[in-house]
Amino acid sequence: MATGGRRGAAAAPLLVAVAALLLGAAGHLYPGEVCPGMDIRNNLTRLHELENCSVIEGHLQILLMFKTRPEDFRDLSFPKLIMITDYLLLFRVYGLESLKDLFPNLTVIRGSRLFFNYALVIFEMVHLKELGLYNLMNITRGSVRIEKNNELCYLATIDWSRILDSVEDNYIVLNKDDNEECGDICPGTAKGKTNCPATVINGQFVERCWTHSHCQKVCPTICKSHGCTAEGLCCHSECLGNCSQPDDPTKCVACRNFYLDGRCVETCPPPYYHFQDWRCVNFSFCQDLHHKCKNSRRQGCHQYVIHNNKCIPECPSGYTMNSSNLLCTPCLGPCPKVCHLLEGEKTIDSVTSAQELRGCTVINGSLIINIRGGNNLAAELEANLGLIEEISGYLKIRRSYALVSLSFFRKLRLIRGETLEIGNYSFYALDNQNLRQLWDWSKHNLTITQGKLFFHYNPKLCLSEIHKMEEVSGTKGRQERNDIALKTNGDQASCENELLKFSYIRTSFDKI
Results as ranks from 00 to 15, higher is better:
28 H>E: 08
28 H>F: 13
29 L>T: 12
30 Y>T: 07
30 Y>V: 05
30 Y>D: 07
31 P>L: 11
33 E>M: 14
37 G>Q: 10
43 N>I: 03
44 L>N: 04
44 L>V: 12
44 L>F: 10
48 H>F: 07
48 H>I: 08
48 H>T: 08
49 E>N: 15
50 L>M: 13
52 N>W: 03
52 N>R: 06
56 I>G: 00
57 E>N: 10
57 E>G: 03
58 G>L: 00
58 G>S: 00
60 L>Q: 00
61 Q>T: 14
62 I>F: 05
62 I>P: 00
63 L>N: 02
67 K>C: 08
68 T>W: 12
70 P>V: 15
70 P>S: 05
79 P>M: 03
80 K>Q: 05
80 K>S: 08
80 K>N: 12
81 L>V: 02
82 I>Q: 06
83 M>A: 03
84 I>F: 00
84 I>V: 03
84 I>L: 02
85 T>G: 02
86 D>N: 07
87 Y>D: 00
89 L>G: 01
91 F>G: 10
97 E>S: 09
105 N>H: 03
106 L>F: 02
106 L>N: 02
107 T>V: 05
107 T>G: 02
107 T>R: 02
109 I>P: 00
109 I>W: 00
111 G>F: 01
112 S>Y: 09
112 S>D: 15
114 L>Q: 11
117 N>C: 04
117 N>W: 09
119 A>L: 01
120 L>A: 09
122 I>S: 04
122 I>E: 01
123 F>L: 12
123 F>P: 00
124 E>H: 14
125 M>T: 05
127 H>A: 12
128 L>P: 01
131 L>N: 04
132 G>Y: 01
132 G>D: 03
132 G>A: 11
135 N>S: 09
135 N>G: 13
136 L>T: 03
136 L>K: 01
138 N>R: 14
138 N>P: 01
139 I>A: 03
142 G>A: 01
144 V>M: 08
144 V>E: 01
145 R>C: 10
145 R>S: 10
146 I>M: 08
146 I>R: 01
147 E>M: 13
148 K>T: 03
148 K>D: 09
149 N>W: 01
149 N>K: 00
150 N>V: 08
151 E>F: 05
157 T>V: 06
157 T>K: 07
158 I>N: 06
158 I>L: 12
159 D>N: 12
160 W>I: 02
160 W>S: 01
162 R>I: 05
162 R>G: 04
163 I>A: 01
163 I>K: 02
164 L>S: 10
164 L>Q: 05
167 V>H: 10
169 D>K: 13
170 N>Q: 06
170 N>F: 10
171 Y>M: 15
171 Y>G: 14
171 Y>V: 08
173 V>W: 01
175 N>R: 07
178 D>L: 13
178 D>K: 08
179 N>G: 13
182 C>W: 05
183 G>N: 04
183 G>W: 03
184 D>P: 04
185 I>W: 15
185 I>R: 06
186 C>Y: 03
186 C>R: 03
186 C>E: 05
187 P>G: 14
187 P>I: 10
188 G>W: 09
188 G>F: 11
189 T>V: 09
190 A>E: 04
191 K>Y: 07
191 K>T: 15
194 T>W: 10
195 N>D: 06
195 N>V: 11
196 C>S: 12
197 P>C: 05
197 P>R: 12
199 T>Q: 10
200 V>K: 03
201 I>E: 11
202 N>A: 07
202 N>R: 04
203 G>F: 08
205 F>H: 09
205 F>I: 08
206 V>S: 13
206 V>G: 03
209 C>A: 05
210 W>C: 09
213 S>L: 11
214 H>Y: 07
215 C>F: 08
216 Q>L: 12
216 Q>V: 12
218 V>H: 12
220 P>Q: 06
220 P>C: 03
220 P>S: 04
223 C>P: 02
223 C>K: 02
223 C>F: 03
224 K>S: 10
224 K>Y: 14
225 S>C: 07
227 G>I: 04
228 C>P: 02
231 E>L: 07
232 G>H: 07
233 L>C: 03
234 C>E: 03
236 H>Q: 02
237 S>F: 12
237 S>M: 05
237 S>C: 09
238 E>M: 09
238 E>F: 04
238 E>P: 01
239 C>F: 00
239 C>A: 00
240 L>A: 07
242 N>F: 08
242 N>V: 11
245 Q>F: 07
249 P>Q: 03
249 P>F: 00
250 T>Y: 03
251 K>I: 01
253 V>Y: 10
253 V>G: 07
256 R>M: 05
257 N>H: 10
258 F>L: 06
261 D>N: 04
263 R>M: 00
263 R>T: 00
264 C>A: 00
265 V>N: 00
265 V>R: 01
268 C>Q: 01
270 P>H: 04
271 P>C: 02
273 Y>G: 02
275 F>P: 00
275 F>A: 03
275 F>E: 01
276 Q>N: 11
277 D>R: 07
279 R>N: 04
282 N>L: 04
282 N>S: 15
283 F>M: 07
284 S>A: 13
286 C>D: 01
287 Q>G: 15
288 D>L: 13
289 L>C: 03
293 C>D: 03
293 C>Y: 02
295 N>W: 05
295 N>R: 15
295 N>A: 04
296 S>K: 09
297 R>E: 06
297 R>W: 05
297 R>D: 15
298 R>S: 12
298 R>W: 11
298 R>Y: 10
299 Q>K: 15
300 G>S: 10
300 G>A: 09
300 G>W: 04
300 G>P: 09
301 C>F: 07
302 H>M: 05
302 H>D: 04
303 Q>H: 09
303 Q>T: 10
305 V>P: 02
306 I>A: 02
306 I>Q: 03
306 I>L: 04
308 N>C: 02
308 N>A: 08
308 N>V: 10
308 N>E: 13
310 K>N: 08
312 I>L: 12
314 E>N: 15
315 C>W: 01
316 P>H: 02
319 Y>P: 01
320 T>V: 11
320 T>M: 08
325 N>Y: 04
326 L>T: 04
327 L>E: 13
327 L>I: 08
330 P>V: 04
330 P>E: 04
330 P>I: 05
331 C>S: 03
331 C>M: 02
336 P>V: 14
